[in-house]
Simulated assay, not measured.
Amino acid sequence: MSQERTGVATIHGTPITLIGLELKIGDSAPDFTVSKTLTDEVSLKDYADKIKLISVVPSLDTGVCDAQTRRFNEAADQLGDNVVILTISMDLPFAQARWCGASGVERVVTLSDHKTASFGEAYGVLIKELRLDMRSIFVLDKNNKITYVQYLQEMTEHPNYEDALEAVKALL
């Protein structure tokens, strides 16, 4: 049974429970398994030797999640081929593909945590009450050490895009 954390996050001011441990800078990033398509799964090792910016959103079909994913997609061009930006949500893979196509998002890799919530639990962002992943940002170096983490306290707020991108640039 995973640890439950209360009093650390809200949605529209209503407290929620997060499942999993809170990760910190310097921690080794835990592995996870998420869906790239309905039948293809990937894990952390599939992005070996890359700097990883992991952008976690509850659902691409909401305003802040849409803006967050578009912002990192725009930044991807300046970061180069040694960086991969992963956007993880509970959206089904075909919903993610539809959203990316409609939004012109091509540089961000969208991954779905819908099957097992492996990512949400391993990174301490699984919302018990909603079975969604809480908005957060993680930056991992090429050796999967966490160099930046932002757990948002209120789901409806934007993350600090500039700090996250600066953390990536510091690893280049």
Rank of each mutant, 00 (worst) to 15 (best):
Y148L: 07
Y47P: 11
G20Y: 00
T69I: 04
S118I: 00
G26R: 04
V8G: 02
V125R: 00
L44Q: 07
P58K: 01
D141R: 03
T62G: 10
A48R: 15
L130F: 13
L165M: 14
V109Q: 14
Y148C: 08
V57Q: 03
H158D: 13
V149L: 04
V56L: 02
D49M: 05
S89T: 13
E166Y: 06
Y123Q: 01
S103P: 05
D31Q: 00
A97V: 03
L21R: 15
M155S: 04
V109C: 10
L38F: 15
K52L: 15
N73C: 12
T33H: 01
L60F: 09
K24D: 07
G101S: 13
E41L: 09
F72C: 14
D40Q: 15
Q78A: 15
T87Q: 07
A9D: 14
M1V: 10
A122F: 02
T37N: 10
R135V: 00
A102Y: 12
T156G: 05
E157G: 01
D31R: 03
E166N: 15
Y47Q: 09
T39I: 09
M155Q: 09
Q78N: 14
L111M: 01
E162R: 10
R131S: 10
E106N: 14
T10P: 01
K169C: 10
A75M: 05
E22T: 13
L23I: 09
G104F: 08
G13I: 03
A29Q: 08
S136N: 01
R71N: 08
A95Q: 03
R107N: 15
E41S: 13
L165E: 11
N144H: 04
K128P: 12
G7M: 09
T110M: 15
V139R: 03
L140R: 06
W99C: 10
H12Y: 14
L92V: 08
Y123E: 02
G124P: 06
P15R: 11
V105M: 08
G7P: 12
S112E: 01
P15S: 05
K45N: 12
L171S: 06
T147H: 09
I137P: 04
